[in-house]
Design a protein around this nucleic acid. Structure first.
Lengths: 194, 194
DNA sequence: TCATTTAATGAACAATCGTTCAAAAGCAAA
DNA sequence: TTTGCTTTTGAACGATTGTTCATTAAATGA
């Protein structure tokens, strides 16, 4: 056997990425072999190299795609009052991250498995995202509606708090995402209140 | 050569654990070989098996030690008012975790590399720790000094926020631990305030 | 129908993995 | 100094790793 019936790069390509995302998230980049990914797709290991030059690039592409999707999706409403922008940000972060737990997990856990160049590029994207939140906090601080000592610290604290939800939240569990979102917004709102 | 001059289990044993802790934290459990740990200690790979039955147990022992140290150290002051207990908890968490970044990193990142039995035991210890904080929140809620919708959520949110500090805080950086602690307490205090 | 392109196989590569163990050598007590 | 114990070496084990490539067969377009 060589090429199999029904095989097509438009089908196999995405499936490779999906399998890698799921398996990396579950077992960790270093613990998942190319053969394991191939087996999940239903293909031999060699075939993966039609879709990625190597394992490292496969990881990097997954992380970069996630970060770019995130930056594309983050709402930009520069005119609205800071408190409304902050609430929108909180709700966006929770819902966006709840929708793609595997990608989020990888983006936060596999940084150390990136080659230095790749690491720097992902870190830059993450900083871009943090800057979106920090800008809101600074505007609110300037306007006197927020009382925060150090916007950078508060930015990191809020993001850590929100992203932590992904370690326990499961859709269909005790609480709906709306309920979780309401409670986190409550905490954030009070924490930065003047 | 066989046994080397000056070799002694009281010396090599701790050094194996220290090397494993540092290397696991830097590179990840799966990516660090027993030979790499041995080289760091200055010994051949086979010698490690005088100190651990296998690699998995080495990881588990490191995580268990960390969690037990944490539970031993967490202050217990059941009589004090909830707000004071909460402030003490926040300060304790930040200072304890700032002192051992490698152990913290491993305890949060290598859970998926634990065998199921080991995982369950570490998770139980983590829950114990979370329960310490939740008890404070519940007492404050009952006393009417805290206003929190769901103590479990607030517990996880606070711990995620505090532990997130470890991703960026470096002693000797822009901010002292005291200053960081002050700001986090400020946020936590306001977030749970009635 | 036939030639070309695309996609997958499966074997092979050298390297590395965790782990075992007999042999060797330093150490401590007699 | 001799004896027994402790600690380490160094080689070896089979399994697995990421990756390459000639070969083969399905898909496509003329």
């Amino acid at each position: 056997m060589a090429r199999t019936t029904g095989s097509h790069s438009d089908i196999t390509g995405p499936r490779v990425r999906e399998a890698a995302l799921r398996l990396f998230a579950k077992g960790g980049y270093a613990a998942v072999s190319m053969r394991a990914i191939a087996a999940d797709v239903g293909v031999q290991a060699g075939a993966l190299y039609n879709y990625t030059p190597d394992k490292q690039t496969l990881l990097f592409d997954l992380m970069q795609s996630h970060m770019m999707d995130l930056l594309d999706a983050v709402p930009d409403q520069a005119d609205a009052p800071p408190e409304e922008r902050l609430r929108t940000f909180v709700e966006f972060h929770l819902s966006f991250h709840a929708d793609r737990p595997d990608a989020v997990f990888i983006a936060y856990m596999e940084l150390r498995n990136l080659a230095p160049d790749n690491f720097a590029r992902i870190e830059a994207l993450r900083r871009d995202y943090e800057d979106r939140l920090e800008a809101i906090l600074r505007d609110g601080q300037k306007a006197g509606v927020f009382e925060v000592a150090d916007t950078k610290i508060v930015t990191l604290a809020i993001i850590a708090m929100l992203t932590g939800v992904n370690t326990w939240f499961r859709s269909g569990g005790r609480l709906s995402l709306d309920e979780v979102s309401r409670q986190y917004w409550d905490m954030v709102r009070k924490a930065v209140a003047a």
